[in-house]
């Protein structure tokens, strides 16, 4: 049974998740006419920068997050940003889109100078998220659980983060049982995606270096969050 407090927690997280989305004018640009590889790259870095800002605003609204140690808040955001952004992109791409939109987005990503060996696992991940048909509250909670992963570099109060993450895991587990009664494995499948996200995270570090060698510049916020000089 989901308790009253847990229902309030789900509502707070879902409201924050829905309230903080990438501005329409940024996403609209992604669907406009074709650009060169260079312009695609600039557009994708603009979207990524906007995703980081959205991620920080969403995270600040996670009940309990702002009572964590300030340095740990920074360490959690830096450690989880790539994974939370992939998860958010996968959730956006798995939404019902007018026909042709997904192809335009995929084409734009393919033509942005990203190395092929990174593209395959990324699109496989997007597909594996799409197949889950998560509800909004499941997506918001899974993103929250990704952010509240205690074993990120430089996190000091491990236990405080773990306690917060446990709270969210307990709510998500109950929600999965309630919303997917025919699929007892559903919760485990969601957690399996977090493992896939970690693998993508490792690929991402290599991808950045391949981009850097083609002297692509990232925005100051992306340089900070991705530790790129």
């Amino acid at each position: 049974e989901i308790t009253k407090e847990q229902r309030a927690l789900i509502k707070a997280i879902l409201d924050a998740y829905n309230r903080h989305q990438i501005p329409q004018d940024v996403t609209k640009k992604l669907l406009q006419e074709q650009y060169s590889a260079e312009e695609n790259f600039l557009l994708l870095t603009e979207v990524a920068t906007s995703q980081v800002q959205v991620l920080v605003e969403f995270t600040k609204n996670i009940p309990g997050f702002l009572s964590l140690d300030r340095e740990d808040q920074i360490a959690l955001l830096k450690g989880s940003a790539v994974e939370a952004m992939f998860l958010r992109s996968a959730q956006v791409l798995s939404k019902k889109m007018p026909s042709g939109y997904t192809e335009v987005l995929e084409e734009r990503i393919r033509k942005s100078g990203m190395s092929e060996e990174f593209m395959t696992p990324m699109f496989n991940f997007y597909k594996s998220i799409g197949e889950l048909h998560m509800t909004q509250d499941e997506q918001a909670l899974l993103t929250t659980i990704t952010i509240l992963t205690p074993d990120r570099p430089y996190v000091k109060s491990h236990e405080a983060v773990e306690r917060l993450q446990e709270t969210m895991l307990d709510v998500l587990r109950k929600l999965c049982v309630l919303q997917h009664p025919q699929e007892p494995q559903y919760f485990a499948r969601l957690l399996g995606r977090l493992t896939e996200l970690r693998t993508l995270h490792h690929y991402h570090v290599e991808m950045l270096t391949s981009w850097k060698t083609n002297d692509h510049k990232f925005t100051p916020l992306l340089c900070e969050i991705w530790d790129v000089q």
């Binding site: 800002q53 605003e57 920074i74 100051p220 969050i225």
Partner: peptide
């Protein structure tokens, strides 16, 4: 040390 952009975003009032 460069002022952290992340810290600035974190310290900005929530729901901005």
């Amino acid at each position: 040390e460069e002022p952290s952009l992340l810290k600035k975003l974190l310290l900005a009032p929530a729901n901005s």
